[in-house]
Design a protein around this nucleic acid. Structure first.
Lengths: 344, 344
DNA sequence: CTGAAAGCGCTAACAC
DNA sequence: GTGTTAGCGCTTTCAG
């Protein structure tokens, strides 16, 4: 039997081996199981012993090793959150909401970024898969079959993506986009343009479908331009493309693109909303203080994050029944939309 | 000996037990150690055997369990990143930089939020401590002794906080603030005000110290107001307080506070920079498109995140020597600063 | 080159 | 109420 000296440093500048449960047991003169119980089942151990054990543990600076605990129990108290582009402020609120809810529940978040690539997404998910009790995939680009395969293996919640047999939380994608069209219509706009984002975006497809139908039923024109990168950098191209049309209002795939377009319109000498109205999606940080403040459809992403975490923490079993949740969004009217003025 | 049936589902709606290394070994007709080697030491196993094992593993959908691997090796390929308030956009760039660098290195990030409380910080750090190979604490509020204690236990890198015997990465906090003062001085400002953030903020203290000294040596007045919450919500109170002084320029503890103040000045009928100039810190997302775009000191936080991760991934040992790194920051002059105009 | 066996730190039966 | 024992899934000596 090899016994390592508990506290012997192994060399200059190295770190001491942290105390283990066994060390504590030995020092306290009790069995390992007693120490374990002292920490995890306070009721099932003599109060005096417990106190003693706890004291000795504190002296030794003992802290239970979650890795060992996880190996035994199969539970890690950790949730994986995978987003498609952590660089995108769109996801900040999501990460924030998820983190808050997780920490409230005593869970920790493992963060992953797919950099918009399905291949990377696969790698990331495979890697964290076994280390988490549940998985949240935001705006996943994975094909349905793969998503189902993951869901069969581990509690999985999709955010802003829906697929058969997989639990999802989406921000409303029907009423919201329709409200935008109605808002614009009521302001007198009769031709609008949708500045689209990535082709593979599920939510982007939903948005356009609803916008197109709503426009049709109101008898106004709607055309789609793009795809454009869903970032501020995509703004100039998107704005320029819009200027080439007869539209008096643009609806951008997201706020980032909208803000980018806003600036470009300014640079090109167009005033917003005087010459052209602009609407975004998400109500990201900054949408309320850009110039002019942006009319946008709130996408309660922090709430979506909270909801997803809540599901995984309190009732992971229900994910096998693949319920779908939809969170209401509403139109936040600010100053980037106004009455239509026919353009020359 | 208890042998669980490898693939038998345990009930309706439950999930199959994932294949383990042992399952693969059995199915492939080899020893567990051979399977292990096939995955981790490709050289030390017969090419044919290896191929066979890999094929069987693939068929079974086997994926090595990182938790078990970590327990044995003591390494988790995971880094803990703890920020004081994930709600603060200030940290977005940090999280982003850290995540990118980590994933490049094949590491995963565990995210923690201390909600500005030292007590919570302790809890969070204690909890993730054993699950990570290294720790990054951003804007830590912990006392030096505790920080040292953690550093003695695990590779630790502090961001924007310095303490003896602990490795740190800070964005320059001397030249930068001085540049702000000089910039303002050169525009003719002779009285400025510092809108301070939380009292416990290490970087806030540094900033004020340099500003005060720089002002003194330039022979201009500098006073400190506050503390104010370092958020947009803190802006109104901060702006109002500043209006009550003779200052023609304000330097805010961070961009959030600066943007909040910007809006308040507008609401109160003051034009920026006509009536008063405003400077922030960090160059957060949005600083370039608020109205007017904010002059601010860049705090290369994404780079700081990358640097911290890089240290922990490539040379964790050096943290015992507690080197200090400082990343250059520079003044980004935009439109919120202009020539001083004496106020009534 | 491959197998057998020990054990990482912890929890959970199962005794006593 | 407490100790003993057997693993969780994997890597790693150590034999063969």
């Amino acid at each position: 039997m090899t016994v390592r000296e508990p506290t012997e440093p192994t060399g200059v500048g190295s770190r001491p081996r942290p105390a283990t449960l066994t060390d504590v047991a030995r020092a306290a003169g009790v069995a390992p199981s007693t120490v374990s119980r002292a920490f995890t089942k306070p009721g099932r151990v003599n109060a005096g012993t417990r106190e003693h054990v706890l004291r000795v543990a504190a002296e030794l600076g003992y802290r239970p090793n979650p890795v060992a605990r996880a190996l035994e129990s199969g539970r890690t108290s950790t949730l994986g959150l995978v987003v498609s582009d952590i660089t995108n402020p769109h996801f900040f609120a999501l990460v924030r909401g998820a983190e808050r809810q997780a920490s409230t529940a005593g869970f920790t978040l493992l963060l992953g970024d797919t950099q918009q690539s399905p291949q990377t997404e696969r790698t990331v998910v495979d890697r964290i898969h076994a280390s988490v009790d549940g998985l949240i995939l935001a705006a996943s680009r994975l094909p349905p079959a793969e998503l189902r395969a993951y869901a069969a293996t581990k509690p999985l919640v999709l955010i802003n993506r829906q697929t058969e047999d997989v639990t999802s939380v989406v921000t409303d994608h029907v009423d919201g986009p329709r409200q935008i069209v109605e808002h614009l219509h009521s302001l007198g706009h009769r031709a609008l343009v949708f500045l689209s984002g990535p082709r593979e975006s599920w939510s982007g497809a939903q948005r356009w479908a609803v916008i197109r139908d709503a426009a049709k039923s109101l008898g106004i024109a709607a055309t789609r331009l793009g795809p454009f990168p869903p970032s501020m950098a995509g703004g100039p191209a998107a704005a320029d493309a819009a200027i080439g049309t007869a539209a008096t209002a643009v609806i951008a795939h997201n706020d980032l693109l909208a803000i980018g377009a806003l600036r470009r319109f300014g640079d090109r000498g167009l005033t917003v909303p005087g010459d052209i109205s602009v609407v975004g999606f998400d109500d990201i940080f900054g949408a309320d203080f850009c110039a002019p403040p942006l009319t946008t459809l709130t996408g309660p992403l922090d709430e979506a994050g909270r909801k997803a975490v809540e599901i995984l923490v309190t009732q992971p079993e229900i994910t096998v029944r693949a319920p779908r949740f939809s969170l209401p969004s509403h139109l936040k009217i600010r100053e980037s939309t106004g009455p239509a003025r026919p353009r020359a």
